[in-house]
């Protein structure tokens, strides 16, 4: 096993690989969890484009939908938010830092803020009325549900009346926080229970780890 340990260590000194100890210190993950995530990340990265430790949008979509070409507004937004450097690919450090927000131990404030940025489609610093309508319409077009434009308008109106406390036609971060406080289920999908037992799902870290948590 000495050989596999050595080759694993050499293999990990690759472009884009960040020290798990540093990543663990900056996120909700333990060092072993970061190492387990590395195994997952390597699998995702090599699914289509073999260019090392870079996760492309097609590979991200393939993992989410079992299809690399499916267009999805929210998968696009999540990818763009994970791509912190905005260079069109997700690097390992970006993957860990972003997924950390979905960890059961991450703060509610981080989750609320991520959801706000997700829904702020045009990154204006506000969730605007037309963005709410665009998201509802996009989801309806993906589903079998059919609603008339009047019904969609009334759903969006009702939501804006409740969320847009200042009445300026858009939801700011403060208003969003208050709205989520009234409807905590809105950030339910900001927590992935899977992340609690990532080391059980990806146990190969046991052979490769250099650190015991």
């Amino acid at each position: 096993n000495c050989f596999s340990l050595m080759s694993s260590r050499v293999g990990r000194r690759r472009l884009g690989y960040e020290d798990p100890t540093i990543l663990a210190s900056e996120t909700a993950f333990t060092v072993n969890e970061v190492e387990a995530l590395y195994d997952l990340f390597k699998k995702l990265c090599s699914s289509i484009i073999k260019d090392g430790l870079l996760l492309h949008k097609e590979e991200f979509q393939l993992a989410l939908f079992q299809s690399s070409s499916k267009q999805n507004l929210f998968a696009d937004r999540v990818f763009d938010l994970f791509d912190i450097k905005r260079n069109g690919v997700i690097e390992f450090g970006e993957f860990v830092r972003s997924l950390s927000i979905f960890h059961p131990n991450a703060s509610e404030a981080e989750k609320i803020s991520f959801a706000f940025r997700l829904y702020d489609l045009r990154q204006t610093g506000y969730i605007e009325r037309d963005e709410v309508k665009e998201m509802v319409s996009a989801l309806l077009s993906e589903s079998d549900l059919e609603l008339s434009d009047d019904v969609i308008e009334s759903i969006v109106d009702k939501t804006m009346v409740e969320a847009d406390l200042k009445g300026d036609g858009k939801i700011d971060q403060e208003e969003w926080k208050e709205f989520v406080a009234k409807h905590p289920s809105l950030i339910k999908n900001m927590t992935l229970p899977y992340l609690k037992d990532i080391t059980i799902q990806f146990p190969s870290f046991v052979l490769n780890t250099e650190v015991q948590d």
Binding site: D76, M135, K158, E162, K188, L192
Partner: peptide, 25 residues
Amino acid sequence: KFLNAFEFISSMSSGFDLSNLFESK
């Protein structure tokens, strides 16, 4: 069924369900 547009959005968006990342292994 949904109290507001965001409940609809967060419940219906499969693109937001990252658990698939872990099931794809």
